[in-house]
Write a protein that binds this DNA or RNA. Structure first.
Lengths: 139, 139
DNA sequence: CAGAATCCGGTATGATACTG
DNA sequence: CAGTATCATACCGGATTCTG
């Protein structure tokens, strides 16, 4: 089953843009998009979400192996952040050695669609960006 | 006209996840998602893209007025970054006083869909996140 | 295994002043 | 109007060490 990606460019998008950019509803000058990106726009959050989206449930060191290059500290920090935002749950089992499982909440899974679309765009257009940078570097 | 947002959760998403998370195609351990977020995941890029997506073409100080809180320096830096990535174009008119127009490239517009979806999610679920943080803060 | 605590450097961001 | 240049700083993230 195919998924129509982007490119509709209809006025539904214009309406969405209007809605999104209508700032300062909640806080003083706080745009939801800015607010969200302050949370998941860091170095590891989205990647963590993607991996949990694929595997449904992962342990601490499983995640660490999957997310190449992440430090122990940053995995901890990232997981705590996602947890306090209600995007993942942390389940610790009273065993020895300890076992802790992380998985997406319903809220977290609801984010997965947008993230996947962003990921699709990234994989599809990464070459174009690399090309643009090269062209600009020469100039 | 309605837009069906997320929630298909079909195996097309599973396939997309596999594809996105298949790391190390281009560089050494470079995931496209990480790569993209290193560029547009900063404090102002997405917001700039959204505003240019709405207005089609904006001048420097127009953007500055629209993007609440951005400093002159950061707007310059952000625009340069987006330009070298091939997401926007910069057109300077030899007039006095000078006039410079920024607009999305085709590449930039192709990103708009994913960004808008992320924005929709953000505006829709911002209350849920705020609620989660409050609940966690009490605990 | 799953972390906590500490130290530390680079960078992203901001404030300010100046220019063509 | 549309920047550039310089300085100051906050904080993100990595390396390391220690623990239940």
């Amino acid at each position: 089953m195919e998924v129509t990606v982007a490119e509709p460019q209809t006025d539904s998008m214009a309406a969405a843009l209007e809605n999104i950019l209508t700032v300062s509803k909640n806080g003083p000058g706080l745009c939801p998009v800015r607010d969200i990106l302050d949370r998941i726009g860091d170095k590891w959050s989205l990647l963590t979400i993607l991996h949990l989206g694929r595997a449904d449930n992962l342990r601490f060191n499983e995640l660490r192996r999957h997310i190449e290059g992440i430090s122990q500290r940053m995995l901890t920090v990232t997981l705590r952040s996602l947890e306090t935002d209600g995007l993942i749950t942390r389940t610790a089992y009273a065993e020895v050695p300890p076992r802790v499982e992380y998985r997406l909440t319903a809220l977290g899974r609801s984010l997965l669609g947008a993230v996947v679309e962003l990921g699709n765009w990234a994989t599809a257009h990464a070459p174009a960006i690399a090309e643009a940078r090269r062209a600009f570097g020469v100039e």
